[in-house]
Structure formats: structure tokens, C-alpha cells
């Protein structure tokens, strides 16, 4: 029963270059939501996104949810004394007037318990929950395994 619903959701957001669209909730701008393709669904996927707080009050990303993962969590890659580890992040601060990037080597969403293989060129929705601004659902573009981010300046030209 789950697959047709999932497929419908995927097809809704399965548009090219969606990582270059901008979404807003309150004073927050959400851009560049992307993920990497996976081989099968056994390994965790990843979520990267940029959040700009154009307001005068601090906010924080406190949770992520998506139909493609049973247990999505916020993590931060930390390199201490030459060793990388990936502790859970309870929240990601989004200070007033600043842009915060969930990006390779820093904060990222870890999508555990994938319900489907993430295929390059497809997409999936993710709901970001902010402490003050509330919830916003944005499409996430699945890029190749080798991708280091969406190439928005050249997209659609």
C-alpha cells in the first residue's frame, strides 16, 4: 500500500533543477535542498539544504521528516584531533540575518531506514520543522553519488 503513495509523492516533486527553487516560511528562505543517489536502500541517505533567516529573531531547525526514511535525524560531522565522527544534533541554529548550510562536512540530515532507493534525477519531499517558524515541506533533488551540490547558476539556461 505504501509504494503507490510514495510513487505519487515522488512524481509530484520529480521536476528537474528543483534544488534551485526557493521556498519561504515566515522570515526563512529555504534553498538548494539536495541529496545523493544511493545504491539500494540499506545504507543511509543524506539531506543538504540552505536556510537564510531574513528576520531579526533567531530560529532553529529542530526536526526533519520525509516519507523516504523511517528515521531521519540531524547530524553534524565533527573532525576532532584528526578523527571524524557524526554526533546527533538536537537542532541547527538559524541566527537572525544569517545563512546556515547543511552541507558536506558539516551539518546534514541523515536519512536512516530508507524506504526506497534514492535515484539520480528523482526527488522526494522533506518537511523541515523550525522552532518558531513552524513546518515547511520542500522538494529535495537527488543528484549523483559524486555530486558536491546543485549547480544552480547554470541550471535551466
Amino acid at each position: 500500500m505504501r509504494t503507490p503513495i510514495l510513487a505519487a509523492l515522488l512524481s509530484l516533486v520529480g521536476l528537474p533543477a528543483m534544488a534551485c527553487e526557493t521556498f519561504t516560511i515566515g522570515n526563512l528562505m529555504i534553498e538548494h535542498a539536495w541529496s545523493r543517489a544511493t545504491i539500494g536502500a540499506e545504507r543511509p541517505g543524506v539531506l543538504y539544504v540552505e536556510i537564510t533567516n531574513t528576520g531579526s529573531a533567531d530560529d532553529a531547525l529542530v526536526g526533519i521528516a520525509t516519507p523516504v526514511a523511517e528515521m531521519p535525524m540531524l547530524h553534524e560531522t565533527v573532525v576532532t584531533d584528526g578523527v571524524a565522527s557524526m554526533p546527533h544534533a538536537m537542532s541547527v541554529p538559524v541566527p537572525a540575518g544569517q545563512t546556515v548550510a547543511l552541507a558536506p562536512g558539516g551539518y546534514h540530515g541523515m536519512l536512516m531506514g530508507l524506504t526506497t532507493t534514492l535515484k539520480e534525477g528523482e526527488g522526494f519531499p522533506v518537511t523541515l520543522t523550525f522552532r518558531d517558524a513552524g513546518e515547511v515541506t520542500v522538494p529535495v533533488e537527488v543528484l549523483s553519488m559524486q555530486a558536491e551540490g546543485p549547480d544552480c547558476e547554470h541550471a535551466g539556461q
Partner: peptide
């Protein structure tokens, strides 16, 4: 390790490049 979602794909992508 191959279940590593962030650091390993990033580095292997650079190696591929």
C-alpha cells in the same frame, strides 16, 4: 565505510574528480 553518508561520499567524489 560505505554506510557513511557525508564524509566518505564527499572524499570519494573528489578522488573521482
Amino acid at each position: 565505510f560505505t554506510s557513511c553518508p557525508d564524509v566518505c561520499p564527499t572524499t570519494l567524489s573528489e578522488v573521482a574528480q
